[in-house]
Design a protein around this nucleic acid. Sequence first.
DNA 1: TCGTGGAACTAGAGCGCTCTAGTCGCTCCG
DNA 2: CGGAGCGACTAGAGCGCTCTAGTTCCACGA
Lengths: 340, 340
Amino acid sequence: MATPLPPRRRPTMVDVAARAGVSRALVSLVFRDQPGASAETRSRVLAAAEELGYRPDGAARLLARGRSRTLGVLMTVREPFEADLVEAIYPEAERLGYEVLLSARTPGRDEATAVDGLLAHRAEAIVLLGPDVDDAFLAELGARTVAVVVGRAAAGLDSVHSADADGIRQAVDHLAGLGHREIVHVDGGTGSNAAARRTGYLDAMAAHGLADRARVLPGAYHEDAGIAAAHALLTEPELPTAVVAGNDRCALGLLDTLRRSGIDVPGRVSVVGYNDDRLARLSHVDLTTVRQDAGRLARQAVRAAAARLDDPDLDPGETVLTPELVVRGTTAPPGRGNCP
Amino acid sequence: MATPLPPRRRPTMVDVAARAGVSRALVSLVFRDQPGASAETRSRVLAAAEELGYRPDGAARLLARGRSRTLGVLMTVREPFEADLVEAIYPEAERLGYEVLLSARTPGRDEATAVDGLLAHRAEAIVLLGPDVDDAFLAELGARTVAVVVGRAAAGLDSVHSADADGIRQAVDHLAGLGHREIVHVDGGTGSNAAARRTGYLDAMAAHGLADRARVLPGAYHEDAGIAAAHALLTEPELPTAVVAGNDRCALGLLDTLRRSGIDVPGRVSVVGYNDDRLARLSHVDLTTVRQDAGRLARQAVRAAAARLDDPDLDPGETVLTPELVVRGTTAPPGRGNCP
DNA sequence: TCGTGGAACTAGAGCGCTCTAGTCGCTCCG
DNA sequence: CGGAGCGACTAGAGCGCTCTAGTTCCACGA
């Protein structure tokens, strides 16, 4: 019988080679699925590895190959739309032969820390999810490594996002088409894509001859902002008939605050979100929203990273996808009052 | 002037050493913050590194040190409670000198794949979030490496979870105290912690002399299960006066489906969740729920992993935290009818 | 004057892989 | 019969670090 399972040490290629009675190089071949080993030897090696519980050491492998073929993804662990993106990143990365490493920005852990972690683990490219990444930080990161921004435009870097102004325009068109005139926008605060959405709203209102009725409430991309905006609206003498929120989370906050205050949605107020995240799609939420295709966004981002990795001299590209209004249950013609 | 920025190659310690005019070993010392370098040299090295944009290569470092000091965390990117856990894991890991790597299980990417990724990146220990991890898989993993399960008990492994039966009992006590007698439980399906919660419910009902009224509806830990359960209840001639859901997501599904069907919550039906995730706490949801302390759960898990790493012969421990009912706005005495 | 000790620094052997440049047997063909 | 050609396999030099065991140098005391 061959040597028993090793004491504590994680088994290495040497152990497998010894047990299978071949050289280290051969084991390496087998594990890389390269030609050059006979079927018989191959299975002997695999068997030996199995018995020892061997798995190739990523660090050593990384070091030995030039490339890590690892994509680092910076995410906010709390944002449902980013969760959708992450789920779509995995398969595309796998298809292109990349591994994925996730790192979260949290209230107590800033982007720089999160990215450093990824870089230390040899991520070849960083995919930054979410529109609130800092410009200066981006520029520096882009100089150091391959970076792709998802969710907003980023000068001088690869970015993948949807045509925000167009998306908001579709929302306003829809509402105006239903007969709404008092349409308010709760915006996404600072950040380039909030600005784009704001502009889109103002332009669309103007296009419908409603420029003088346009009104932007300061907001942000989370529920609390929607709640605050709803409370602000409720203190006013007259409610608008429709609200376009900066994103779905904000819309959700708005929605529930309005409903809990006895306001019928969409009977008295229509609400539109942005993103079409999982939450919006849940049947009990049933939010009319502007759909960004998370799958396509994610695939494009991964491809952009891979392309730049293949050819670092590529010009930075901005991929803009066309968003699409999804009409669900939170919009209706105005004036149905509170009791349908 | 010294050499200009290198062409493409990521700079290495050799480059920094050359630029600073010292040996590689000294650079290593400086970057590991070890004594043995004069203040003057130290800053010279740091300056050289800065100029070159050098950052230590994690892979090489990993390989050279025995240990990676990295914790791998398996998560479901879509579960808000796990997001809370992840956020709490980072600071504790940092405090103990560990890095954190995240890997997501998704519909198309199973636990084994996710864990393999972590292991390949040399995670020394795996923290598995969520109760649906497979038993056989766990056992095998536990034999291979250090694994800590969060959210359920796991025989033979370290686990950190809350006293599920106790939590549910508190919920039932609360409802019974309000005068409810028709209390239904929508359970979490298979999985050990769903079983514990189910048992807790049945025992608590019995303790209140309501054994014959106890009723468990099959469910799961997500919104759709809550929605389905609500629809099932709505087809029946008589609604129960209270529902204890398996977790918050399920409760949310229930809640909104009931409300959209014109059922007053808590006037006609009271709803209780489990977890107290961010969503439950949002003011527009305001869910009465059983709070699991994500912070403590996360800290305990990290500590358990660290402890076992320090001493592999430690007996596997089960840490059970006491959950606590948080009464909010979705529970009230029964019988207030539909129009308060 | 010489040792002595400590601070500052260096040489060089790994860590577990990959990959290039082989070597070794065969078969096959002229 | 000699060698070209090929499949199967191996030796050994890295990859960019860490870490042990030095070596140098310079006070400082006897």
